[in-house]
Nucleic acid binder design. Structure first.
Lengths: 130, 130
DNA sequence: TTACTATATTCCTATATGGTAATGGATGCA
DNA sequence: TGCATCCATTACCATATAGGAATATAGTAA
């Protein structure tokens, strides 16, 4: 896992060498991912870039709100901006952001599965095991 | 990466199949990791379990605060509790939680490196490249 | 210039949350 | 039984933040 892609001298396995300052940065990074609407934006940008108006419509929320969340994602280097005329197209800066989400999804799935088993019976969400 | 370990029917690659409810859960999971003190706790529990008193001393904060943060980590299945007499020992529930942190660290390292290069000169944090 | 569109920002409010202090509850021991 | 220790919980305060409404800014076109 993580073959050579993340290999960098400043990498910090298991959070070990993290001083308080770096740890705060990591916390802020996680916080940027802790809002459903921001996850929706990242999710929507998965296939292709979108401008603010498109996102506003797709996500069914106010334009101001979308802009504000995009600014937060920008601040953490998660998306990049590409101005075209009066439009601003946003795209995913690094698709590895989805690895994070997948990890979380996998852990949640495991947890729900074991919880369901503790409650007896087959895990509801997994009944359609193929 | 992620060979067979996360292989579960409910897994959700790239957040694609996530409905709003699941997405909220993912956001809450990230939020649990968005506090420096909670990351410190996870970091401290990396090597071995600790009880509340030890954590209070190691992290230099109030006992009530540690207990509250531990409750949050418990609520998300990140740590497990083991009562021994009047003590409560906490341990990491699933060491894969550190994979998340390492991913974030790696991305931050990459980003800082490219930022430093944009500013010209060798990236400060990477000078000691071996 | 003026008008129009798209986006960003500011102000405000309601809510959520981290921290402390105080209290409660359970266990262990004399 | 009484007391001490360890932990969890509650109440409270200060701060942070998501969201809406209004406004500001930038680009485009007439």
């Amino acid at each position: 896992m993580g073959r050579d892609r993340n290999r960098i001298d400043t990498e910090c396995p298991q959070l070990k060498a993290l001083d308080d300052r770096a740890l705060t940065h990591v916390a802020e990074y996680f916080r940027a991912l802790s809002e459903p609407l921001r996850l929706k934006i990242l999710n929507t940008l998965h296939d292709r870039p979108h401008n603010v108006g498109e996102l506003t419509e797709l996500l069914d929320c106010s334009q101001a709100n979308v802009s504000k969340h995009l600014a937060i994602l920008m601040r953490h280097g998660m998306v990049e901006r590409d101005a075209q005329g009066t439009s601003a197209f946003y795209r995913i800066a690094d698709p590895r952001i989805y690895d994070l989400c997948d990890l979380v999804c996998g852990q949640m799935a495991l947890r729900f599965a074991s919880q369901a088993q503790l409650l007896g019976g087959r895990p509801t969400a997994m009944r359609a095991r193929r």
